[in-house]
Amino acid sequence: MAFARSDSGKNPPKMPTAIKLLIAGGFGVGKTTMVGAVSEIRPLRTEETLTDRSVGVDDLSGVEAKATTTVAMDFGRISIGQDFVLYLFGTPGQERFWFVWDELARGALGAVVLADTRRLADCFPSVDYFERRGTPFVVAVNCFEGAPVFDLDEVKLALNLGPDVPIMLCDARRRESGKEVLIELVKHAYGKRPTAAAH
């Protein structure tokens, strides 16, 4: 869906196809760390606000409402040659930020749900959300020192994951590890792509 105008004088330069990947999970689970480990740029931060979407912000009350509903997201970028650019968004894990999730998940290729075995329940909302929405996702258990080591099958059971949802261990600080998680995700999303079932 090219949106570029032909009457804007020159032909617009060819742009890469942008692809969105999400990194979700509870607070402090390592989302920003993973974004930073794999990104080619230092993670950037952007803000979304609820009032942006729903209220014309001409009056002071709108401004006040904005102050209470701003959500900051960290994101990074991975260029794949000239043709594709991946954007990785660290997604806040709390359910009350649903308005950001909906926007982020729209058109996303897939999501990584990061889990910490010390606080496994923190990733339930993310798992629920992507299941309900049908967004392909993988679960990556971030290995913090001193965290209880569970068998991945046990974690899978505890999260009540479908049999086809990939689950793996990772170290969010390591680029290689983040890369492996993203490769798993893209492979999984490929099998789940909308047309894959239809054919």
Binding site: P12, M15, F84, L86, I183, P194
Partner: peptide, 27 residues
């Protein structure tokens, strides 16, 4: 000029998945 992302990944994009996988592996 503004280019919107693909609304959804369709079968034409089989090449895209492959290119992205190859790209990630090569990182």
């Amino acid at each position: 000029a503004v280019q919107q992302p693909q609304p959804e990944m369709n079968v034409l994009d089989e090449r895209m998945y492959k290119a992205v996988l190859d790209g990630l592996r090569a990182l």
